[in-house]
Design a protein around this nucleic acid. Structure first.
Length: 256
DNA sequence: ATGTCCCGTCGTACGGGA
C-alpha cells in the first residue's frame, strides 16, 4: 500500500499535473495540501474520473487540504485541530483508508520570524502534537503526512546559511518537530535516507530547481504499527521538473 | 535586494502568501 503526500500549490492551476501524477504513479492514498480552493469549487468530478474518492477541507484562496483514496472513499475522522477556536485556516484533515489512519497536514509556514505568524506556527505544532498523541493512544497504524514547513536537520537543506533566518529552520521549529519524533513517530524519509540530501521542495525563485537548491519539508510520520510495515520511502522528484509544476514534489511511503 | 508562482479582485495590475 502506497501513501503519498503532495503540496500541489493550487489544485485548479495544477489539475492536469495532479491527474497525470495519479495515473502514472497510482498511489493508494494521496494527501494533498495547498489546494487553494473553496469547498464548492473542488474538482471532485475530475478526481473521480481518475478513479479516486476524495474528501477535502477547502478555503478560498489559501491553504486547504484533501485526502484521496484509489477506488474508495476515505472515511473522515477529523477536520481541523482542536485547541484554538478562532483558527479558521484549513490545514488538517484525517481519515481512515483500508484500516490505516491517515492525516493530511499543512503546517503554517511561520515567516517572517519572529512575529505573530511564527507564534501561530509554534502553537499549531503544539496542537498537532496533542492530536498525534490521541491517535497514538488508539494504537492504529497511522501515517501523518504533509507539508510540515520544517527542515528537521542541517542535512535536509542545500544551504544552512541561505535558510538560517527562515522560520522553517529555527531551533524552536526543529524542537517542536523533534518532540513528535521523541513521542515515537518515525520520519519515514529520514529512516530510509539517513545520509540526507533528499529534497521535497525547490523554490520557484533564484533558479532553485536547475541548481538543485532544495530542502526537505514534506514528511510522513509513521506510528509503530505503520513503521513495522515500512518497505520504502521516496520522492517523485521528476514531477518537479515538468511544465507548470508545483514547487513541491510528491513524497510517499510503501507499506507492506 | 532580487527572483517566481498562485489566488482573488470594486479585475485585465496588484497585493498577499509562500
Amino acid at each position: 500500500m502506497r501513501i503519498a503526500t503532495f503540496n500541489i500549490n493550487g489544485i485548479k492551476a495544477r489539475l492536469p499535473r495532479l491527474i497525470e501524477w495519479l495515473e502514472e504513479t497510482q498511489p493508494d492514498v494521496a494527501c494533498l495540501q495547498e489546494i487553494k480552493t473553496s469547498d464548492e469549487t473542488f474538482p471532485e468530478k475530475d478526481i473521480a474520473a481518475a478513479g479516486y474518492g476524495a474528501i477535502w477541507h477547502g478555503q478560498k484562496g489559501f491553504n486547504g487540504v484533501a485526502i484521496l483514496a484509489r477506488g474508495q472513499m476515505p472515511v473522515e475522522i477529523a477536520r481541523g485541530l482542536e485547541g484554538e477556536a478562532e483558527d479558521e485556516h484549513s490545514r488538517y484533515l484525517e481519515a481512515d483508508v483500508d484500516g490505516i489512519r491517515v492525516a493530511s497536514i499543512y503546517l503554517p509556514n511561520g515567516n517572517p520570524q519572529p512575529g505573530p505568524k511564527f507564534d501561530y506556527k509554534l502553537r499549531w505544532m503544539h496542537r498537532l502534537r496533542l492530536r498525534a498523541a490521541q491517535i497514538w493512544a488508539e494504537e492504529v497504524p497511522a501515517v501523518l503526512a504533509g507539508d510540515y514547513n520544517v527542515i528537521p536537520q542541517d542535512r535536509d537543506t542545500f544551504s544552512v546559511k541561505a535558510m538560517e533566518t527562515d522560520a522553517l529552520m529555527q531551533p524552536e521549529s526543529r524542537a517542536a518537530y523533534r518532540r513528535l519524533l521523541g513521542d515515537g513517530w518515525t520520519d519515514a524519509l529520514a529512516s530510509r535516507h539517513p545520509q540526507g540530501g533528499v529534497w521535497t521542495y525547490w523554490d520557484y525563485q533564484a533558479n532553485s530547481w536547475p541548481r538543485d537548491a532544495g530542502f526537505r519539508i514534506d514528511h510522513l510520520l509513521l506510528s509503530p504499527a505503520a513503521a513495522d510495515r515500512l518497505k520504502d520511502a521516496q520522492v517523485d522528484k521528476d514531477h518537479r521538473g515538468r511544465e507548470k509544476a508545483s514547487d513541491h514534489a510528491p513524497a510517499w511511503v510503501e507499506l507492506g
